[in-house]
Design a protein around this nucleic acid. Structure first.
Lengths: 339, 339
DNA sequence: GAGTTTTTTGACTTCGGATGCAAAATAGCT
DNA sequence: AGCTATTTTGCATCCGAAGTCAAAAAACTC
């Protein structure tokens, strides 16, 4: 039974002394591609073992200028999409020996303070699945910190980003609804500033224009479940009622389904159809089984990480955008139009 | 337009030179309680501003032996409880100037590698909402790293932990069910090794023993939504069918509700009642409106953090357990027993 | 204004590893 | 063995900020 804790943690010098070698030797033994003889490695490793030595990542980071830290920014909004993205990113980064420094963003002000921290902690890079203004983005890149935007980008500024193209899947989705006889669509859009939402709805409008059908109402929500309630009432309260509601994300689609059932006595898909975007796990609950446009989150995470690593190693790489296609996932929230 | 990036980032020396003072002076200006004259502070701050200087947290951590990093361990299991805890912890830690180093744990092996990283990154402390063995816990505390267990503790080893006592709320919940005339209960338990689940079900059994009623079946799930499907079938397939199902967490309760509706044609609460534990956000969706025993996650996070900070400042503090009471939250998943 | 106390300031050392370079050790070759 | 080519190893210095301590400056006293 050792006296717990108080003893200082072992340093490379301690290991060196015990092993009877120099500190540099110890350092080399813990560096992957270094030139060390077998004997040396054995001696050092034994001493390290005995002292419970592990290199100090902080000290290492100071000299190598590589912290192996990646800042991940996610919105703390109640939208289950974010945790999924976060966990996917974290799992994968861990496997590559990179640590996640997590920043949850509630509002604009949070972003500013987070960016200061990002800078102070010498992160190797940033993956942002949260809102970031062009200026904020530039502050980071100007300072030489690679930034990858997850599922967002700037229209007018080159940005390294992963993006999910929903156009083909939306087209498929509208065809699916049209085949079911739907003609009148209510749109539950995202917030005004959301480019993801704007893009999704642009695709929806285009597909409807191409394939036929009318939009009976278009209302904004804030991507959260709760916001769908009022939005659905607005949609249903319009002059003409739709037979299908298309929501800009799954959370709102779920909210819309529940509102339709609870308040309007509609069954889904019996009387109304509902579709969403994202393909989050909770949309697969049997109570919803949402027809939705699924983002390949895992593959998007891989893409983001690989672009990030490329840029950590070669900072001069120019911005790049990787686009993955979303896919239409048919659930049971869509069925024949009941007029 | 500055030449982007390539320039080295400014250090305290650069600022000192520009301001015409010593490096120590710069350092002091960035330390809260230091003695600096107004003139000096002004000069330094202007220079810092001009150079876009922010102290290097890595270098600072090296000398102060305080990284201001807190490792947060959460299970990456598909259980929405974890993201909620994580986000609560992160929001609060950020406000206190502490950064979250996130570790998602898939399995035992992940824990081991994570602990190595925790050690290497000189975190100031660890908050674990994930499985941790007694040995793993001891490795950390022996090394002098404060560990706070979130919603778990060891029966036989003193542990600093936050815990939610569900006993009174469970008693209330059973009374609620008894008042509705329920006599036969099916238990959907957690995995065998889960002490949280064991504790919850112990309280349930005790309350039933005290207030009357029989347990028709007791089946284990793994806390995930999907596991409730088979478990519910087992419960419903037993010799005697219950009128209410008590699940060890909300995810499984939701799964049970859906299984009852979809496969057994039961309505909830029309034909069967279902209750859960946790009080996660998704249990509030209108499709579920689960009656559940709610954990005060926010307050638990506060408690965990305050205990952590206490121990970072005074490592010699002995283990402490803070216990908060859960509360019974009545939803619409419970109603009169229909025999 | 000289003498004393208090506050500010700067020179220097420290934290714990990584690395360039030269010395030492080993291997390779005739 | 003798001598060169190649590894290994250790020394010394660096990364960037913080803290110690004594010198310098400012603030008080009488």
């Amino acid at each position: 039974m050792e006296p717990p804790g108080n003893k200082r943690r072992a340093t490379s010098y301690d290991v060196a002394r015990l092993a009877g070698v120099s500190q540099s030797a110890v350092s080399r033994c813990f560096k992957p591609g270094a030139s060390v003889s077998k004997k040396m490695r054995k001696k050092v490793m034994e001493a390290a073992e005995a002292l419970n030595y592990q290199p100090n990542a902080i000290a290492r980071g100071l000299i190598t200028r590589r912290s192996n830290l990646v800042a991940v920014l996610v919105s703390s909004q109640m939208n289950f999409y974010y945790p999924e993205v976060l966990f996917q990113l974290t799992d994968r980064l861990s496997e590559l020996g990179l640590r996640v420094l997590l920043f949850t963003i509630r509002d604009e002000a949070d972003v500013e303070t987070s960016l200061d921290q990002v800078w102070q902690y010498q992160v190797d890079g940033v993956i942002s699945a949260s809102y970031l203004s062009v200026d904020q983005h530039r502050v980071l890149t100007d300072r030489g910190i690679p930034v990858i935007m997850f599922n967002r980008y700037f229209a007018d500024v080159p940005t390294t980003s992963v993006w999910c193209d929903t156009a083909p899947a939306v087209s498929e989705m509208i065809r699916h609804l049209r085949d079911f006889g739907h003609q009148r669509f209510g749109l539950l859009e995202g917030p005004a500033h959301s480019m993801v939402g704007a893009d999704r709805m642009r695709n929806v409008r285009r597909a409807i224009a191409e394939q036929g059908g009318t939009i009976t109402a278009s209302v904004r929500g804030d991507y959260r479940y709760a916001s769908a309630s009022e939005a659905t009432q607005d949609i249903m309260g319009a002059d003409v009622r739709p037979t299908a509601i298309i929501a800009a994300n799954d959370m709102m689609a779920m909210g819309a389904m529940d509102e339709l059932k609870a308040v309007f006595g509609k069954s889904v898909p019996g009387n109304m159809s509902v579709v969403g975007f994202d393909g989050i796990n909770s949309a697969r609950f049997a109570s919803y089984e949402l027809s939705t446009i699924r983002q390949p989150i895992g593959r998007m995470a891989d893409a983001a990480i690989s672009m990030l690593i490329d840029r950590v190693e070669k900072p001069e790489l120019s911005p790049e955008r990787r686009v993955l296609d979303g896919s239409f996932l048919q659930g049971t929230s869509t069925g024949p139009a009941r007029v």
